[in-house]
Amino acid sequence: MIRALAITWLLAAPALAQEAPDFIAKRAAGQLEAAQNALLLADRATDRVQALTKTVKAYEHGLVALREGLRRAAIRETALRRKFEAERERLAQLLGVLASIETSPGPLLLLHPSGPLGTARSGMIVSDVTPALQAEVATLRAELEELALMRALQQSAAQTLQDGLAGAQQARVTLSQAMSNRVDLPTRHLEDPQALSNLVNSVDTLRGFAAGIAEMRIAGAEAPLHIGEARGALPLPVAGTVLRRAGEADAAGIERPGLIVATEPRALVTTPWSATIRYRGPLLDYGNVMVLEPGDGYLLVLAGLEEVYGDTGDVLPAGSPVGLMGGNVPGAELFLTQAANGGGGAKSETLYIELRQGEEPVDPGIWFAFDG
């Protein structure tokens, strides 16, 4: 019975995950510390906007990694507790056996009433079972230590999280100020600026607006490089999860020609390619919209932002910030709760991404590089 108990316990031991929660959390803490250092150095950077953009993204990546580490820690802790609860009776038997072995004198433990032959057989059984018991005890000890580590990880993350959330907010505010003060960008201008105002006031669909923008003549600084060179390799403008691709119907059965990406609150949105701002501001029921012209007759429409940067006619290098998503960043306590529950409420905002060539939409899925 003891041998069967030991073998069953060993077979139930979990395999190590590819990335342990404590490893992910430590890496996240390092990312957040690096982001804090970058924020302190941003004021002295040659290109302050670029430095702050990288800092905000570093904070975003660090907080996402920290949430994942805490999520895995909570899942692992729950699994271990459920296992201990389910194995309560068997654990009690194991501890009882270990206690009896430790308290019984060696000669008496091996003494058998049937005589020397029985004593020899009992000695062979004990010597055979002892390694399995030792292995089982080692497994139990390791899992108890892991349980303590998971709990300590969640408790110690509070201060790291608090500092990370505060730093990310400071970086966003500083970036917004830097963008409002920026005057070094080349510009292109509309030949008929009033036409844009008329279009905004008269249009009733995003398609009609994009078509009208495409027809407006623009002059000034040199146009961006050919976007065709980046086909299939463009980074998404925002860190997030693709909810729907082009042509996929939503819950109401509505199909759109663009991507819908779920993002964290206040996530930073950047241009994936050098582009001219053709329009920025509120439009219809899309919230704030940013229309970028990356060249070759293409227009990139980003809808759903809360805050937009830059002015119409600015020519932006690739990776430039164009705005922030809306929503409320959770406090440390809510962040920890969301992480423990699987992070279900984390990506509460959605960015709509549409790519058009002339008057026709094209599938952005063949232009952007993303998983899933």
Results as ranks from 00 to 15, higher is better:
107 P>S: 01
164 G>L: 00
168 A>S: 13
145 E>L: 14
143 E>T: 07
112 H>T: 00
127 S>W: 12
119 T>R: 07
86 A>L: 09
138 A>K: 11
173 V>D: 14
122 S>H: 15
129 V>K: 00
117 L>D: 08
161 L>Q: 01
79 A>F: 05
172 R>C: 01
144 L>I: 13
155 Q>T: 15
140 L>R: 07
99 A>F: 06
124 M>I: 13
119 T>W: 02
158 A>D: 10
132 A>R: 11
159 Q>I: 11
145 E>Q: 15
141 R>T: 14
144 L>S: 05
109 L>S: 00
124 M>H: 09
104 S>F: 00
135 A>K: 11
160 T>L: 07
96 G>H: 12
83 K>F: 13
154 Q>H: 08
95 L>Y: 08
125 I>F: 08
95 L>E: 12
106 G>I: 12
157 A>V: 06
116 P>G: 10
92 A>H: 07
113 P>A: 04
158 A>T: 15
98 L>W: 06
97 V>Q: 04
162 Q>I: 06
149 L>P: 02
153 L>A: 07
114 S>T: 15
136 E>P: 04
149 L>R: 15
137 V>W: 09
85 E>G: 08
159 Q>L: 09
163 D>T: 12
97 V>S: 04
137 V>D: 10
125 I>C: 02
138 A>T: 14
154 Q>T: 10
141 R>C: 09
106 G>L: 13
109 L>P: 01
79 A>W: 06
125 I>G: 01
119 T>G: 13
122 S>G: 07
105 P>I: 00
167 G>R: 02
166 A>S: 12
97 V>P: 00
142 A>S: 13
132 A>H: 14
100 S>F: 04
125 I>E: 11
140 L>T: 13
118 G>T: 03
109 L>A: 03
101 I>A: 08
91 L>R: 10
95 L>F: 11
162 Q>M: 05
94 L>V: 06
142 A>C: 03
134 Q>W: 11
80 L>S: 07
87 E>V: 08
94 L>F: 15
115 G>I: 03
172 R>I: 05
125 I>D: 07
170 Q>S: 11
154 Q>R: 15
108 L>V: 07
